[in-house]
Deep mutational scan, measured.
Amino acid sequence: EEEKYTVIYPYTARDQDEMNLERGAVVEVIQKNLEGWWKIRYQGKEGWAPASYLKKNSG
């Protein structure tokens, strides 16, 4: 089951394993960790993003 989330704040990656996020983008969360960083898939790429910048899509 894919978990789709919408980006609610833009984010600029500060590290090579982080993802740039555009507000309104829909991403797939593939791994959650306890530090508040989630691994996401977006446009065929995978990387880490701050969970607080993502909002779960309803339905």
Rank of each mutant, 00 (worst) to 15 (best):
E1C: 05
E1P: 01
E1D: 04
E1Y: 04
E2P: 06
E2R: 03
E2L: 08
E2S: 13
E2H: 04
E2Y: 06
E3C: 02
E3A: 06
E3P: 11
E3D: 06
K4M: 13
K4N: 14
K4W: 09
K4L: 13
K4G: 07
Y5T: 02
Y5C: 08
Y5F: 14
Y5P: 00
Y5M: 03
Y5N: 01
Y5R: 02
Y5A: 14
Y5L: 02
T6N: 07
T6V: 12
T6P: 00
V7Y: 01
V7H: 00
V7C: 09
V7M: 03
V7S: 02
V7I: 07
V7K: 00
I8V: 15
I8M: 09
Y9W: 09
Y9E: 15
Y9H: 15
Y9T: 15
Y9I: 15
Y9R: 15
P10E: 08
P10T: 12
P10Q: 15
P10D: 11
Y11S: 03
Y11M: 06
Y11Q: 02
Y11H: 11
T12A: 13
T12H: 12
T12G: 07
T12E: 05
T12C: 11
A13K: 10
A13M: 03
A13N: 04
A13W: 04
R14K: 13
R14H: 10
D15L: 08
D15M: 15
D15A: 13
D15R: 13
Q16N: 11
Q16D: 12
Q16L: 09
D17V: 08
D17I: 09
D17F: 12
E18L: 07
E18I: 04
E18Q: 13
E18M: 05
E18A: 06
M19V: 14
M19S: 04
M19P: 06
N20Q: 05
N20I: 08
N20M: 12
N20D: 12
N20P: 07
N20G: 12
L21G: 00
L21A: 01
L21K: 00
L21S: 00
L21W: 01
E22N: 08
E22P: 11
E22G: 07
R23C: 07
R23N: 12
R23F: 06
R23P: 13
G24C: 02
G24Y: 03
A25S: 08
A25I: 06
A25R: 04
V26Y: 03
V26L: 08
V26M: 14
V26F: 04
V27E: 00
V27I: 07
V27A: 01
V27Y: 01
V27R: 00
V27L: 02
E28L: 06
E28C: 09
E28V: 11
E28R: 05
E28H: 09
E28N: 10
V29A: 05
V29Q: 00
V29W: 00
V29T: 02
I30W: 01
Q31I: 09
Q31S: 12
Q31F: 07
Q31T: 08
Q31G: 12
Q31R: 08
Q31A: 13
Q31P: 00
K32D: 09
K32E: 07
K32G: 05
K32R: 12
K32V: 03
N33P: 13
N33S: 10
N33F: 04
N33H: 12
N33E: 15
L34Q: 14
L34D: 15
L34E: 13
L34V: 13
E35Y: 06
E35G: 11
E35F: 07
E35H: 11
E35C: 06
G36M: 07
G36N: 10
G36R: 10
G36T: 07
G36D: 12
G36A: 05
W37K: 02
W37L: 02
W37M: 02
W37D: 03
W37C: 15
W37I: 04
W37S: 04
W37R: 13
W38M: 01
W38F: 04
W38S: 14
W38V: 03
K39N: 01
R41D: 02
R41F: 03
R41I: 11
R41K: 15
R41S: 12
R41M: 03
R41T: 07
Y42F: 14
Y42W: 13
Y42H: 11
Y42I: 11
Y42P: 01
Y42E: 02
Y42L: 09
Y42N: 09
Y42M: 06
Q43Y: 07
Q43V: 05
Q43F: 06
Q43E: 14
Q43I: 03
Q43G: 14
Q43D: 12
Q43H: 10
Q43N: 13
G44H: 04
G44D: 06
G44V: 00
K45C: 11
K45F: 05
K45W: 04
K45S: 09
K45R: 11
K45D: 12
E46C: 10
E46N: 10
E46A: 11
E46T: 05
G47V: 08
G47N: 02
G47Y: 04
G47E: 01
W48C: 05
W48K: 13
W48S: 05
W48Q: 11
W48A: 03
W48M: 15
A49N: 00
A49C: 12
A49W: 02
A49Y: 07
A49R: 01
A49Q: 01
A49G: 05
P50D: 05
A51E: 13
A51P: 14
A51H: 09
A51Y: 04
S52L: 03
S52G: 13
S52K: 15
Y53V: 14
Y53F: 08
Y53R: 13
Y53L: 13
L54Q: 00
L54F: 13
L54T: 00
L54W: 01
L54V: 05
K55Y: 05
K55F: 03
K55D: 14
K55P: 00
K56N: 08
K56H: 08
K56Q: 06
K56W: 08
N57T: 10
N57F: 15
N57S: 12
N57G: 12
N57P: 07
S58C: 13
S58F: 06
S58P: 14
S58I: 08
S58M: 09
S58N: 06
G59C: 09
G59A: 15
G59T: 11
G59K: 15
G59D: 11
